[in-house]
Design a protein around this nucleic acid. Structure first.
Lengths: 363, 363
DNA sequence: ACGGCCGATGAAAATGTTTGCAAAACTATT
DNA sequence: AATAGTTTTGCAAACATTTTCATCGGCCGT
C-alpha cells in the first residue's frame, strides 16, 4: 500500500488535504481553532494516508512528550504488579504512555534509569519509596521534572508522596499480635538497606513490641528476600527453634504466604499452633485458605492516584519544589482473617476469642 | 545551579568544550571517530554542564528511538509479571527503554495501544500471543516496524513467535491425568474468545481426552477469569457436583491455586480426594504446600529471548516480512509434584504410586 | 458604505540532533 | 622538503513538527 521509503509526514497529509502543514498540526492539537469544513478535510486526509503523527518531533519542539516514567524495584511477585497495572491504566486513560523499568532494589541503578528516562524527555517520573540517592534528587531538580514518590507516605518527604504510612502498617500488625496476647513474636523481613518501606515497618513493629514490654531475641529476627523459597526456608528455621515463636510477623504478604507453607510443611496448624500476619493485602490474600490476616495497603488505588497527581503536576506546570502539591495519605487498615488467634498457651487458659471450623483453619 | 529556562543542549556543550556540535555528537555516538584529547575535553564538558542528551531529537533524525514496546493483556496476577520483568531487564541491558501497556484481553484496545506506541516511534514491538486484529497486522506492515509474538509459538505464525506450544502444554497435562487413570476430568479455563493461548490449551486437552475415550460432560466445563476469587467459586461448584470429578485440569497456575483453596475449604485432601494440575509453573508454584503439579512454560527465559530477538531484528534491519527471522520454540515440560495422584477409586484397588506424608498432602 | 474587529489560514522560524561532504591537520614516504 | 594518504574536525542540510506573526476575508455597528 505505501511505497517503500515513502514515509508520510505532516506535509504529505497537508497537500492531500489541500491545506498547509500548520493547519494539520492545529487539527491534531487545537481542533477548536480550525474551521469545521477544513477540519473534516484534514481528518479525512489523515485517515486516507494512514498518517501516524510523530511524537518525537512533537516532543522535540519543547512540547510534552506525553510519556511518564515509573521506576519500581521489581515487577515480579505481585508486590508491585497491582501498582504497575493501575498506574499504567490511569496514565493510558489520561493520554500518556508509560515507560517502565525496574532496578532490583539498587538505588544506584535507579539513578541510571532515571537518567535514561530523562533522555527520553519523560514529562514526569514516579519512584517507589522515599529513599533515593542524592544524585537522583539533584538530577530531578536540575531538570525541573515533576516527580512523585509512591507507596510510602510522609508529609516531610522531599518529593510529594502518595501512599500509606508504612511505619503505621507495621505498628498496626504488631498491635494486633500484642492484643491477642502474643509475647513470643518473630519478625521475618526482607533486607532493608535500600528499602525504606521495609525499614519503617520493621522499626515500628519493634517499638510497639518494646512499648508492650516484649523483647525480641536475636534468633527471632529473620531476613529473607521477597521470594517464596528463601522465605519458606527462613520461616522453617524459626519454627524449628527450641523455643519457637507463637507468632510470625512478616514484612509482606508474599513472605507471609511462604511462612504459611513452612508451617503446613511442618504439620503445624494455623492459627492454632502459630499465628502469621502479613502486610500489604495483595491480590489473593483474602481468598487463600487459610485466609491471611494482614494490613491492607490499597495498591490499586495508590497507583491510580499517583498517576493522576503526577499528570496533574505536569499539565498544571507545577514543579516539585513548588509548594501546594503535597502528597496524599492512604490509611492502612488491619484485615483480621484466619491466620491469627490467641497464642496456644493463652488459649489453654481462656476461651478462644474466635471460633472457626478447625479443619479449615488447620489447612 | 542551572538558570531558569537555560536548557543545555549540544551547542552549549560544544562551546563549553571549544568544539563543534558535530564533534560532541560523535563523542556520544561514534567515540572511535574522535581524537583522544578532544574526547576527554568533550566528556568533561558534558559532565560539567550536566548535559542530558535529547533522545527525541535523535529519534526525529530518523535514527533509532532506542525504545521498544511491550503490550500484555495484564500485569497483575503473576501471569505476565515474570515475563515483563525479564523482557524489561534484557531490553535495559541492551540499551533500550521499555514502553509498557496492558489491554485487559481486549484486542481492540491492543490496536489503540499499538498505534500510540508507533506514534512514539518505538523501534520494535512485542505482543502476547498469535491472535491480533487485522488492523494491527496491517499497521505493523505499513510502518515496517519489527514485531514479535511472545508466549505462544507456532512456526506458521504471521509474526515470528517466541514461546512454547500452548497446545502441547495442554496435551501434556491431559496425558498426565490419563496416565494416572483419571476418567472424570473437569476443565477450569479462562474465557478464550480473545485469548489464543487458553483456546489452544483447552482444545488440545479435549482431544487428548477424547483419544483416550474420555468424555467430558457439560457440567465439567467450567470458566473463570484469571482471578483467585471467581476461580475458587467455580472450582467449588465443580467439587459440589453430585458426581464430582477426580481431577481438575486448570488453564493456568493461578486458577489451579484457587482450585486447591476450594478443595481445602471443602476439607478435601489433595491429591487423595482430588487431583489438580495447572499450566505455567509460575513463581511460587514449586514451593506451595502442597507443591503444584504443572506444566512448565519458562516465562523468564521466554521474556529474555524475545527481547534479544526483537532487538536483533531492529539492529540488523530485518523486517517482519523478511524470511529467516523465524521464531523460537521453548519446550514445555511436565513437572509432577504433589497435587496429582491416581484417582481414589483406582487407588482403592491398586497401590498408590507415590507415598508422601498425608498430613502435608492434605493441607 | 466604511473602518474596525475577529476568526481562519499560511509562511517561516525554531526546536536539538545526526551525518555527508569538505577542509584542515597530521603522518608517513620518497 | 614535497606529496600522498589518513585521521580529525567543522559546516550546513536534513529530520518532522509547533507556534508566532502576518494576512486575508468576512461581518458588524454606526
Amino acid at each position: 500500500m505505501n511505497r517503500r521509503d515513502e514515509t508520510i509526514n505532516i506535509h504529505k497529509v497537508a497537500s492531500a488535504a489541500g491545506v498547509s502543514p500548520a493547519t494539520v498540526s492545529r487539527v491534531m492539537n487545537h481542533p477548536q481553532m480550525v474551521g469545521a469544513e477544513t477540519r473534516r478535510k484534514v481528518t479525512d486526509a489523515i485517515r486516507e494516508t494512514g498518517y501516524i503523527r510523530n511524537r518525537a518531533a512533537q516532543a522535540m519542539h519543547g512540547r510534552r512528550s506525553a510519556t511518564i516514567g515509573l521506576i519500581v524495584p521489581t515487577v515480579d511477585y505481585a508486590i508491585f504488579a497491582s501498582l504497575v497495572q493501575s498506574f499504567g491504566d490511569k496514565a493510558d486513560e489520561l493520554g500518556f504512555t508509560l515507560l517502565l523499568a525496574s532496578h532490583g532494589y539498587d538505588l544506584g541503578r535507579e539513578y541510571q534509569i532515571l537518567r535514561k528516562f530523562l533522555e527520553h524527555r519523560v514529562d514526569g517520573v514516579a519512584l517507589i519509596g522515599l529513599d533515593h540517592t542524592e544524585d537522583s534528587f539533584a538530577l530531578l531538580a536540575s531538570q525541573r521534572t515533576p516527580a512523585i514518590a509512591v507507596w510510602n507516605h510522609d508529609p516531610a518527604s522531599r518529593l510529594p508522596s502518595v501512599g500509606a504510612r508504612n511505619a503505621e502498617a507495621g505498628a498496626v500488625a504488631a498491635r494486633h499480635l500484642v492484643a491477642l496476647g502474643h509475647r513470643r513474636v518473630a519478625l521475618l523481613f526482607p533486607p532493608d538497606t535500600e528499602n525504606d518501606r521495609a525499614r519503617l515497618r520493621r522499626s515500628a513493629v519493634l517499638s510497639v513490641l518494646d512499648a508492650a514490654g516484649i523483647e525480641v531475641p536475636p534468633e527471632y529476627h529473620a531476613t529473607s528476600y521477597y521470594d517464596i523459597a528463601p522465605a519458606k526456608a527462613a520461616a522453617t528455621r524459626l519454627l524449628d527453634l527450641d523455643r519457637p515463636p507463637t507468632a510470625i510477623l512478616c514484612g509482606n504478604d508474599v513472605i507471609a504466604r511462604a511462612a504459611i507453607y513452612a508451617a503446613a510443611a511442618r504439620g503445624l496448624s494455623i492459627p492454632g499452633d502459630i499465628s502469621i500476619v502479613g502486610i500489604g493485602d495483595f491480590q489473593g490474600s483474602a481468598d487463600m485458605v487459610p485466609a491471611l490476616t494482614t494490613v491492607r495497603i490499597p495498591a490499586t488505588r495508590i497507583g491510580a492516584e499517583a498517576a493522576t497527581r503526577l499528570i496533574d503536576m505536569i499539565v498544571s506546570d507545577h514543579h516539585p519544589e513548588d509548594t501546594g502539591v503535597g502528597g496524599c495519605e492512604f490509611p492502612v487498615e488491619l484485615v483480621p482473617r484466619d491466620t491469627t488467634d490467641v497464642p496456644k498457651e493463652a488459649s489453654e487458659r481462656k476461651e478462644p476469642t474466635q471460633g472457626r471450623p478447625s479443619t479449615v483453619d488447620s489447612v
